[in-house]
C-alpha cells in the first residue's frame, strides 16, 4: 500500500466540551488542516476506553488522537482528563509491547478556545504519522 496512494488514517476521540468544541472553532475560523483525522465525539476524554484505541489500530488506523480539556481544572467532569492521562501512559507502554510505535497514540489538551491549536495538532500529527508510514501490525 505504500506509495503515493497511501494516506494516513487517524481516528480522533474528542471530548464534547473542549477538544470537540476546539475543532468546531477551527472550522468557524476556517483554519485548514489535512482531512486524514476523522473525529468521534465522546462526552469526556475519561470515556475513552483503551479497547477503543486497540480496536482502532486493529481495524486499520495508523494513528489515534485523544483530545480532552486542559488539566488541572478544565474537565467538565472534574477529573476525567486525569483518568485519560493515566490510561494513556499505561497504554503507550502496552503498545510498545505489542510492537506498535507509541508515537502513533497522542493525547492533547485542547480548549474550546483553541481552534488554532486543534488545527496545528491535526497538521503535525498527520505529518508525524505520514513519516512513520502505515501501521503494520505484528511487528513494526
Amino acid at each position: 500500500m505504500v506509495g503515493d496512494e497511501w494516506e494516513p488514517k487517524i481516528v480522533a476521540f474528542l471530548c464534547n466540551w473542549c477538544a470537540y468544541a476546539g475543532a468546531d472553532l477551527a472550522g468557524v475560523s476556517r483554519l485548514k488542516y489535512p482531512p486524514n483525522i476523522v473525529p468521534i465525539r465522546v462526552p469526556c476524554s475519561g470515556r475513552v476506553d483503551p479497547r477503543f484505541i486497540l480496536e482502532a489500530f486493529k481495524k486499520g488506523a495508523d494513528g489515534v488522537l485523544i483530545g480532552g480539556c486542559h488539566t488541572p481544572n478544565d474537565c467538565h467532569y472534574v477529573v476525567g482528563n486525569f483518568k485519560a492521562y493515566k490510561r494513556y501512559i499505561l497504554l503507550k507502554k502496552l503498545l510498545e509491547q505489542l510492537g506498535i510505535n507509541p508515537k502513533r497514540l497522542r493525547l492533547e489538551w485542547i480548549s474550546a478556545s483553541e481552534g488554532r491549536k486543534f488545527a496545528e495538532v491535526a497538521r503535525e500529527f498527520t505529518e508525524e504519522i505520514r513519516n512513520l508510514g502505515p501501521l503494520r501490525l505484528w511487528g513494526e
Partner: peptide, 12 residues
C-alpha cells in the same frame, strides 16, 4: 458534523 469538521477546514 460535516461543516465545522469538514467543509470549513478542507479544500480538496
Amino acid at each position: 458534523n460535516i461543516r465545522e469538521h469538514v467543509s470549513w477546514v478542507h479544500e480538496d
